[in-house]
Simulated scan of single mutants.
Amino acid sequence: MKPARSLPGLAVGRDGARGVTRTLPEEVPVAVSFNGTTLAVMMCTPADIGDFAHGFALTEGAISSLDEIESFEVVTHPKGIETRFWLTDTRAEALAARRRHMTGAVGCGLCGIDSLDEAVRDLPHVGAPALGLTRSEIAAATDALKGHQPLHDQTRAVHAAGFLRPGVGVVFAREDVGRHNALDKLIGALALAGEDATTGAFVLTSRVSVEMVQKTAMAGCPVIVAASAPTAHALRLAEGAGITLAAFARAGAFDLYSHPERIDTGDAHVA
């Protein structure tokens, strides 16, 4: 399945109408199953599906490490994609004890959970020390991510998540129509490559909502840099989880909220 396709349309303006062809992002249902039982069906861009499935499994607590996976495969069906994990017996039993259903659209990573407790689940505390990230690196992060967004360049309709390594730049990036799917793809890609998420920052093209902080905490990443705003609840979660949150990062500036001590702002005090 292709991540985008060119389709005809009619452009209507002041001077009349004309035929156009636009490249549009694709989205398909992706089922994530463990030992023969589906845990979730999410609408995703059909690219980097293995990364998405592994990232989703880690950030949703289905697994705690890749060592708990005995085998994995991606199966394409006429109506969508199925990702199949087979877990160790111990992990499969633990997952069965806390199994929840998540059938959601791309706009809501919490759709379909079966309790309020799951929506406000306790998060691990990210205790990583200062990374040596500078004010200039944070201010330029979202611009740097633009160089890793080929699908966005084609469609202007997808989000991206990137991994910023201090002193190096953006070294990994993934795209998807769903902002949380893009982050899951990134987290999965890092895990499969053996990269330590605690050593850098996540850079997001989107707003920072609750599930973005939850996934960041589960990955152990200490810093979020976002092009848009956080919600108030997301900011409270970031503060409690020990995550540094920089928002409105664009045009060479940013707002710094929780745990500002990780960023060298060049100033004696941060208000």
Rank of each mutant, 00 (worst) to 15 (best):
110 L>R: 15
114 D>I: 03
106 V>I: 04
74 V>D: 05
107 G>Y: 01
60 E>Y: 14
65 S>L: 01
93 E>W: 03
88 T>E: 03
60 E>P: 02
54 H>G: 03
47 A>G: 04
82 E>L: 06
121 R>I: 12
76 T>N: 09
64 S>T: 14
55 G>N: 06
64 S>I: 03
59 T>S: 09
84 R>P: 00
87 L>M: 04
37 T>Q: 05
44 C>F: 03
98 R>Q: 15
29 P>W: 12
108 C>F: 13
100 R>D: 14
73 E>G: 04
103 T>E: 11
34 F>P: 01
26 E>H: 13
49 I>D: 03
128 A>D: 13
102 M>S: 11
40 A>D: 11
124 P>S: 08
83 T>R: 01
130 A>T: 13
24 L>M: 13
89 D>S: 09
67 D>T: 08
98 R>S: 15
125 H>K: 10
84 R>H: 00
32 V>K: 05
106 V>P: 05
42 M>C: 03
76 T>D: 08
75 V>I: 14
35 N>Q: 10
44 C>K: 05
127 G>P: 06
91 R>P: 02
109 G>M: 02
26 E>S: 15
92 A>D: 00
115 S>M: 11
82 E>V: 04
37 T>R: 12
63 I>N: 09
125 H>M: 05
41 V>R: 11
70 E>M: 00
74 V>L: 05
114 D>G: 05
88 T>K: 05
77 H>W: 06
72 F>V: 02
31 A>D: 11
63 I>Q: 08
48 D>H: 10
53 A>W: 00
131 L>S: 12
97 A>L: 04
64 S>K: 10
41 V>D: 06
127 G>W: 07
125 H>Y: 12
46 P>H: 06
29 P>I: 12
48 D>I: 02
64 S>V: 08
88 T>C: 01
28 V>W: 09
131 L>Q: 13
80 G>M: 03
57 A>F: 02
115 S>P: 07
127 G>N: 09
48 D>T: 04
108 C>W: 06
83 T>M: 00
76 T>R: 15
84 R>N: 00
59 T>E: 05
50 G>M: 00
121 R>G: 02
106 V>A: 13
130 A>V: 13
42 M>D: 08
129 P>G: 10
55 G>L: 10
51 D>Q: 03
100 R>Q: 07
74 V>K: 07
49 I>N: 01
104 G>K: 04
101 H>Q: 06
59 T>H: 04
42 M>V: 09
117 D>F: 06
89 D>R: 15
99 R>E: 10
104 G>Y: 03
102 M>H: 11
33 S>R: 14
63 I>D: 11
36 G>M: 12
118 E>D: 14
74 V>A: 06
79 K>L: 10
39 L>H: 14
106 V>L: 12
81 I>T: 07
116 L>N: 07
82 E>S: 12
127 G>Q: 08
60 E>K: 15
117 D>M: 05
64 S>W: 10
70 E>D: 07
103 T>F: 14
102 M>Y: 12
120 V>A: 10
72 F>K: 01
81 I>S: 02
45 T>Q: 10
106 V>E: 09
100 R>A: 07
43 M>T: 12
72 F>E: 02
80 G>K: 01
102 M>C: 09
38 T>V: 15
54 H>K: 12
47 A>V: 13
94 A>G: 07
114 D>N: 13
118 E>A: 14
85 F>E: 00
61 G>C: 11
97 A>Q: 01
88 T>A: 03
50 G>L: 01
40 A>P: 07
94 A>K: 15
95 L>S: 07
128 A>Y: 07
